[in-house]
Amino acid sequence: MSQEKNSQTMKPLTAASKLGIYLPATPEEFRNSSFTRAQLDALRNDPPEWLTELRRTGPFPRDVTARKLGVSNSGLQRADVADALTTAEIDTLLADPPEWLTRERANFVAVREEADRVKAKDADRRAASNRPAKNRGV
């Protein structure tokens, strides 16, 4: 006799994170439930109206807000942006960027460029170390 396999469940915060939504903005029923992978997939594949609306207008969690603004999560923290922002608030910031947003966007680009430079340098170093050594006067 085989026992039925128990599905692992995830907490609402984990499910919200995987869906890219801000947990406090979800319906109470969502916040008080646990989810299986199948239930999460069902929400992804056939989202209810509240989920569609939340994804469209927000408020968004910090990582989504940062991505939409083109800054890092740390940049939002440095700017004291503590609350989740809505699409309208993000659009307002992008339309007339405050000094902190301009600075953080430039910083984000510089950090990305440096990371790309280091990655390319490491790749070149690895490629060079994998080349066969030439005969050295032997």
Rank of each mutant, 00 (worst) to 15 (best):
L94R: 11
A120E: 13
Q39I: 04
L51A: 12
V118S: 03
E99I: 10
S17V: 04
L43P: 01
E89H: 06
L13Q: 14
N107G: 01
L85N: 06
T57M: 00
E89G: 02
P97H: 12
I90S: 07
F60T: 06
D41V: 00
T102F: 04
E113I: 15
Q77I: 07
R37I: 02
Q39T: 04
A25I: 03
F108N: 13
L13F: 08
N32L: 01
I90Q: 06
P61R: 10
T9V: 12
Q39M: 11
E29Q: 07
L101Y: 05
T14G: 00
P12K: 01
V111S: 03
R78V: 04
S34E: 15
N45F: 12
L13T: 11
R44T: 07
G58N: 05
D122I: 09
D41F: 00
R103L: 05
T102Y: 05
E53S: 11
A88F: 14
S74W: 11
E28L: 00
V118K: 09
P98C: 15
W50C: 01
L93W: 08
E49G: 00
F60L: 04
A123M: 07
S74M: 13
L85M: 12
S74E: 15
L43I: 05
S7C: 10
L93P: 02
R117N: 06
V64A: 05
N73T: 15
P59M: 06
T86I: 07
D124Y: 15
D63P: 00
D96H: 10
Q77R: 12
I21A: 01
K119Y: 13
R67W: 12
D63E: 09
A84E: 09
N45K: 12
R112G: 12
M10Y: 13
D122K: 15
R105I: 11
P12W: 02
D46Q: 09
T9K: 07
P24A: 13
V64R: 09
E104M: 14
P12T: 02
V64K: 07
A110I: 11
N45I: 08
T86P: 03
A82P: 00
D96F: 09
P61K: 08
R78Q: 13
S34H: 15
A106V: 14
P97Q: 07
G20R: 03
V111N: 04
W100M: 13
T26M: 00
S7A: 13
W100D: 15
K18E: 13
R67Y: 11
S34Y: 15
A66W: 07
Q8S: 02
A84S: 13
E89W: 10
G58I: 04
E49Q: 08
R105N: 06
S34D: 15
M10S: 02
A66E: 05
W50P: 01
D122E: 14
P59K: 05
E89F: 07
D116K: 02
D96N: 15
P24Y: 10
Q8P: 00
F30E: 02
N73R: 07
E113W: 11
L76Y: 08
F60H: 08
F30Q: 02
Q8K: 01
G70H: 07
